[in-house]
Structures are given as C-alpha cells and as structure tokens.
Computed example of a mutant assay.
Amino acid sequence: MSRSPAHPGPDAPLTQVELIFEKGRIEQWLRFGKPASELRLDQRRRVLGFAPGTVFAVNRWAANDYGTVLSRFEVLRAVSPGEASQTLPYLRPGAELLLATHGWPRVARVLQAIDAIEALGIEAGQVAPDYWRHLHNRLSAGHPAHPYTRMQHRAWLKRKALGR
C-alpha cells in the first residue's frame, strides 16, 4: 500500500525545526501546526519534528539593545524525501515554502489573516496551500489579500480528498 503525504508511514523522516527562546532577545515560536515529535535540548532550545504533508508556521523575532533587528514569518509544508524543498537556517532538511515575509507591518498582516481564518473555525494548518501562496504574492506586491472563505476551504478539502 502506498502512502500519501497526508498519511505518511510510521518510518517517514520528519522535518526538524529548531526554535530558540531568549525573552527579549531571540524569540522563535510555532504559530500553528501539529508536530509529530518534540525534543527539548535545554531551557531555551527545542526541536520539533513534522511529518511529511504537515503545514506549519514559524514566527521569528530578534532584538538588540536598540530595538527589533528581525521580524520574519514563514508558512511551510514538510516534504517527503525527494520532493523539492527550501532550506532555512533553522530547518532540516528543508520544506516547501508557502509564504515568507519580513518586517513587522507585513508579519502583522499575516497574523491578522490567520486570526480571521481561525475565527471561521478553520485550523490554519488545514488551509489550502494555494491561499498561503496568494497571501505571500499579495504582500510582496503591496496589495490587499482576499480573505480565506469557508467555501474556498470546502473546495480545498474536496480536491484534497480526490488527491489533487
């Protein structure tokens, strides 16, 4: 029996995400997504593992004595071995990059979009990957994004059930 990315086998390799949290200096956290594993390295570092097909988001922020020096947000999909992927410093071996943005105004717009999706009762990790690409492209162009709708979500779930 072959396994789809949504239903990986028990031995499927995990995409590993290392997160660091030093209050007021380096703060990296998972905004949404369900890790299959978690390993706490020490008080400030942990490694999360995601099964192939899992969509998750990482918010990264850093500051120095003068204020914020980094504000980034990425939505990623864990991939199976052999699938195309993007590498990032905190990600092993890589993942499909669905959305990437930097700078607080854009990060805030992504967080507002996620809040609006969750207000519909939809788990952000289950949103159509095409929507995250749409949001990425609209942010990059400086245009407002279309809101994600229940109808769009139902259509995505039906396409996904058909394997498309």
Results as ranks from 00 to 15, higher is better:
Gln112His: 10
Asn59Ser: 13
Arg109Tyr: 02
Gly33Trp: 00
Leu139Ser: 02
Arg109Asn: 12
Leu48Val: 11
Tyr131Ile: 03
Val79Arg: 13
Ser4Ala: 08
Ala161Thr: 06
Ala36Lys: 07
Ala95Phe: 00
Glu96Pro: 02
Arg106Cys: 02
Tyr148Asp: 03
Leu88Asn: 04
Val107Ser: 06
Pro8Asp: 00
Pro35Cys: 07
Met151Cys: 10
Leu98Lys: 06
Leu70Lys: 14
Gly121Asp: 01
Leu19Ala: 01
Glu123Gln: 11
Ser37Arg: 09
Arg92Ile: 05
Leu19Cys: 09
Phe56Gln: 10
Asp65Asn: 15
Pro13Glu: 04
Arg109Glu: 15
Ala95Ser: 05
Trp156Lys: 02
Val69Ala: 08
Arg60Ser: 15
Gly125Ser: 15
Glu38Phe: 05
Ser80Leu: 15
Glu18Pro: 03
Arg138Lys: 14
Ala124Phe: 12
Pro129Ile: 06
Lys158Thr: 11
Gly103Cys: 10
Val17Gly: 06
Ala100Gln: 10
Tyr148Ala: 06
Leu99His: 10
Pro144Gln: 01
Glu38Ala: 06
Ala57Met: 02
Gly125Pro: 00
Ala36Thr: 06
Gly82Phe: 02
Ala100Cys: 11
Arg46Phe: 04
Lys34Gly: 05
Leu19Glu: 02
Thr15Tyr: 08
Gly82Arg: 04
Ala62Arg: 15
Ala84Leu: 09
Ala145Gln: 07
Gly103Pro: 12
Ala155Ile: 09
Ala141Phe: 07
Arg106Thr: 04
Gly163Lys: 03
Tyr131Pro: 04
Arg25Ile: 07
Asp42Glu: 08
Thr101Met: 08
